[in-house]
Write a protein that binds this DNA or RNA. Structure first.
Lengths: 402, 402
DNA sequence: ATGACTTAGTTCGAGACGTGATTTAACCTG
DNA sequence: CAGGTTAAATCACGTCTCGAACTAAGTCAT
């Protein structure tokens, strides 16, 4: 039904240029011969299109492969220094800005703490603007654009508006507000989706084309990749994994509903549940300055014997069970080739909970989709959201082929 | 990452031919002028491509539109009599075969009861073969193919194998087995997906491009449409809505897990739950020869006063609540523009339960995705599965443009 | 009835593209 | 340095879409 697509011969060339560029970006360096093999185009066309790309400065020669009796193959690669991009992770506990080259090699980074643990959108805009200015100062190549991952649903109408129901962002016009501070192209998307894109390009999803990436931080979300591309639903709100209902009339979630997964498995929820359990057990609970430390203390407590350890182990076990059930839902409903757990809280919790999580998934998923999937940890660490945000302008470039 | 797509100028023509054919199929009859508007192609190209389609016999002239001072526009439409297709619904309670013209107008139908309420795959194959032979007898045009909707997960490896965990089909090689009886092209897919396709083309999804269709029969499944096309996951198992976990350690589901939605909302589950409730209340329960009658009796009982009515109302109310929660999950996670309830049980239950279902969805869904969606009844009735199956060969024709 | 006007559809020449065949380039071996 | 081998560029050809010119088929005023 979409009215996009090739119409005339020039669109055809654009598509073929994009195809070669993409191949070189993800599998380069390659020779022209390799490109013929990989794309099915004729040698004449590959020569022509490569000449285009060389002229545009997007691709450069990268040495030659040693000859085996004939003319040696000249290798080609994307010139990663031809453009730079900026990726921003607007998290509930901090804002992280990073500058990358076109190949997503990190060039500079900046961490801004969120003041008072509250993500006031009115404070976020000037913070990002200042960070952007600082990062741009060192750039050695034109900036392709700025990608931003946010903790909420993004609606393009046509300028990005963010609905962060759980962090108090009510239809905040982030794109328009940032537009006052910069003329750079802006790409705003849900943070879980950007994380998913980063893991697909460079991490745990490199070798599949359908996967679900769980972002466990203060809350819980997911990025869904289908057929190699982000699945966004009719707005971009697909992937609100944290608000699957796992318990009828269960715990109250900060979204206002009862029984959401996020009310059990996000860092905020785990900490709250531990506080309740500790109180019930008559022990002291924990005293931490922030969520990351609190989570570390709970994990440490679980190693100890006695009532305190018992409470921590029980809270963590239920966390694993709820995550496992949530993953089984995803496996049954979306049939991904892989489920990847990421986010700072996910990366902190999963190493010790993974066996239990897998056990629960096995018990609750249908046999066939279960047999075709696996549950693993993210490969990129906690900066995957910012890195994935930076892939957005690059993806645009690869699609356009210029 | 996909390696499909246009390469040379002939592929370009094929794509444009497909584009025009598709436009005529869904929005015809149209004049060449309308096609220029709709596709953005030049008048010259439209003339050429239309000439192709006329030569191929796929399109015919269909009168003219009255002139407004100039030469009248000649209308074009797809010749629906140029091909016929067969669609088959393999349901848990019956097998339905239908023959259609290319425009999915029904030409003939055949209903085969499932003997003994058990869907033995070894009995299904000869039944389908016999039904096919009977239906083909009356065909007046070449048969484009046979589409089959089945109650289970379909894996193409490369011939369709059906995993119907809840009906006891264990990797049944349906395509190979049917191949022994017919040389017609076979298109096998999950029944919920075919129903979704039918509703998208001709029913409740005509004006959107992202929707979820719930198939409530003996069990419960869903067909997911994203960007106008069926979402199939890495195999075709996406959409196993009935096995979302809605209650930790809840009722035992026939899939073997506990707390699946299907253990609460499928006809089989509703009848079982009513039997338990009636027994607990000391009333007689129901005595019906099949599931459809049983469901009717329960709905009728809910209209009566007294303990019996009370039990029925309570069972139906929980059914509505569970369906509502299951829909809220879908709304949050996939962000569809519409959620449509279909299937014979869904169509029987939903009229009376819809207000309660909507109330529960509202309470459990996030505000934004809730505000962008609606929950409604299917528009095509219970033969949507067979009709949707028949769309599969047609979809192939429209994609190929010849 | 006639001719001016209007709109629909076709034809024509130009420009762009991809392809297979041919030619040129660059290396190796003896 | 000649003969062989493989890579890359070039050429001639066919196909495509497009804009413009042209033909077809109506209406309307006179």
């Amino acid at each position: 039904m979409t009215d996009e697509g090739r119409r005339n011969v020039r669109d055809l060339r654009r598509a073929n240029r994009a195809r070669l560029l993409r191949q070189l970006y993800f599998h380069g360096p390659l020779s022209r011969q390799d490109l013929i093999q990989a794309t099915g185009l004729s040698s004449a066309s590959v020569s022509n299109v490569v000449a285009d790309l060389l002229d545009a400065g997007l691709v450069v020669e990268a040495g030659a492969v040693e000859s085996e009796g004939g003319r040696p193959r000249i290798l080609l690669r994307v010139d990663t220094s031809s453009f730079e991009v900026i990726g921003i992770d607007v998290g509930e506990t901090r804002i992280r800005l990073e500058r990358f080259d076109l190949g997503l090699g990190e060039l500079a980074a900046l961490d801004l703490p969120v003041i008072g643990g509250s993500l006031d959108p009115e404070a976020v805009v000037p913070a990002i603007a200042a960070g952007l200015a600082e990062l741009r100062a060192g750039a050695a190549a034109p900036l392709l654009g700025v990608g931003i991952g946010v903790p909420g649903i993004v609606q393009h109408q046509p300028y990005a508006v963010v609905h962060g129901q759980t962090v108090g962002w009510d239809a905040f016009p982030l794109e328009e507000r940032l537009r006052e501070h910069t003329e750079l192209p802006l790409f705003i998307d849900n943070g879980a989706t950007t994380m998913a894109q980063a893991e697909m390009w460079f991490g745990a999803g490199r070798d599949v084309d359908s996967a679900v990436f769980l972002l466990l931080g203060s809350g819980a979300g997911a990025g869904v990749i289908a057929d190699g591309a982000p699945f966004r639903g009719s707005t971009t709100s697909a992937g609100e994994w944290g608000h699957l209902n796992v318990q009828y009339q269960g715990r109250l979630c900060r979204c206002g509903a009862r029984g959401c997964l996020e009310a059990y498995v996000g860092a905020e929820a785990v900490i709250a549940r531990y506080a309740e359990a500790a109180q019930a057990a008559g022990s002291a609970g924990i005293d931490a300055s922030d969520e990351e430390e609190a989570l570390r203390l709970i994990l440490a407590a679980a190693e100890r014997s006695g009532r305190e350890g018992e409470a921590a182990r029980s809270v963590l076990d239920e966390t694993a069970v709820r995550i496992g059930v949530g993953i089984a839902d995803v496996v049954n409903f979306l049939n991904p080739q892989r489920v990847i757990i990421g986010g700072w809280a996910g990366l902190a919790l999963a190493p010790s909970l993974l066996p239990r999580i897998r056990e629960v998934v096995r018990a609750h998923a249908l046999r066939l989709p279960y047999s075709l999937t696996s549950v693993d940890l993210g490969a990129l660490g906690a900066d995957a959201v910012a890195r994935g945000a930076a892939t957005l302008p690059v993806a645009r470039l690869l699609e356009a082929g210029a």
